[in-house]
Amino acid sequence: MHDMKAPGTAIAELNGNASTGTRARFPVDFLFRKLTGAVALLVALTLLAIMFALVDEGSHALHVFGWHFLVTTTWNPVTGQFGALVFIVGTLISSAIAMLIAIPVSFGIALFISELAPRWLRGPVSTAIELLAAVPSIIYGMWGLLVFAPWFGNIEPWINDHIGAIPGIGLLFQGPPMGIGMLTAGIVLAIMVIPFIASIMRDVFMITPAPLKESAYALGATTWEVARHVILPYTRTAVTGGIFLGLGRALGETMAVTFIIGNANNLSASLLMPGSSIASVIANEFTEATTHLYKSSLLALGLILFLITFVVLVFAKLLLLRLERDAGGKA
């Protein structure tokens, strides 16, 4: 995640044959190879194990509610009625807000670092953005709840009056100025995923071949035109991959969201109202879940989250791999 530069070209040609021979002639070599191979397989099978474990733990809820679990909005521990829809929608909306903000900002940052910044400024800015990724999510959450939300609560009346007054989309921006809610969660999520998307974009922008850019400049293109019509098309797959990697992060982010999303178990049209995401409801209610069905429903939610992020991440990695292959000579 930290660096996607290919690890050089010096890979020993003799891997996997020559001296790693047979059981009889080189018993220790054979054992060493089998041991490391077994451990590697164990790591690879973890994903499968996670899925089996969550299916097993969530099976009771899925058995009781069937596919209605996915489309029901009721979540009532008292009556034992559990449906995932509110949380699935909450997860998707907060992540969508995050991506709407994070994508243009990351693109700007990557463009600045790779094309505009003087050489001496590149390192410090890159490091600053990467440090943003190192800040633990609990601190984002705490800062979001105790510092950002009160500040944002002062702005919300303005949003109410101006954006909320627009017919149509105005409905999304009406509500009491509490500071916490879906929009706040989306904004903080955006700040958290920016470093992931920006550093991938920066890395691939940097490896765009100079002759391509220089040809465009020679034809009189402006820096923006080079970025828009040369760099972006060249790196399109990897940029999309980076965006999906960021989306995978946003979907599964827990602590920051739990602090500021408001934890309301119902759907509301306004983004200023409190909501819940899959991760936040699991984090909030897991230790309170006393009945088997309650706990099983929470684990089934975990399974849904796992499946969604799994698909998003696989897609992201496949796109990123394609760039490595196309770039040739890399890994």
């Binding site: 995640m1 790591v43 994903l47 699991i282 984090a283 975990g302 992020t309 992201a316």
Partner: peptide
């Protein structure tokens, strides 16, 4: 042992997915 093998590429791929998997799911596991 697997730098040039298909199985190695697959394991590397799955490991990268695991690297980005949500930590809350890991906790549930």
């Amino acid at each position: 042992f697997a730098a040039r093998r298909k199985l190695g590429a697959l394991v590397r791929f799955l490991n990268d997915i695991l690297l980005s998997a949500p930590s809350i799911v890991i906790g549930l596991f």
